[in-house]
């Protein structure tokens, strides 16, 4: 799954730690999501959606796995 989290975070002038603080998760989780290594749960995706005032589809983009 691709995402625009890093871009949105930069637009809001937030560090990974600040975003983690705002979402109630660890900085490691934000980093893993930004790098596409970890897909967040639906509740966490909704929190991001509310925080950045964007729909989930405008933050995350589903792509078929290569495997």
């Amino acid at each position: 799954m691709k995402n625009r989290l890093k871009v949105l975070r930069a637009e809001h002038d937030m560090t990974q730690q600040q975003l983690a603080d705002a979402l109630g998760v660890s900085r490691q989780t934000i980093n893993a999501i930004e790098k596409g290594k970890f897909d967040p749960s639906l509740p966490l995706a909704f929190k991001m959606s509310y925080l950045f005032n964007r729909s989930i589809e405008r933050i995350f983009e589903y792509e078929e796995s290569a495997s």
Binding site: A20, D21, A22, L23, G24, V25, K47, L51
Partner: peptide, 9 residues
């Protein structure tokens, strides 16, 4: 939400 993560930590 800031308060939420203070609680989380």
């Amino acid at each position: 939400m800031k308060e939420e993560n203070k609680n989380f930590k």
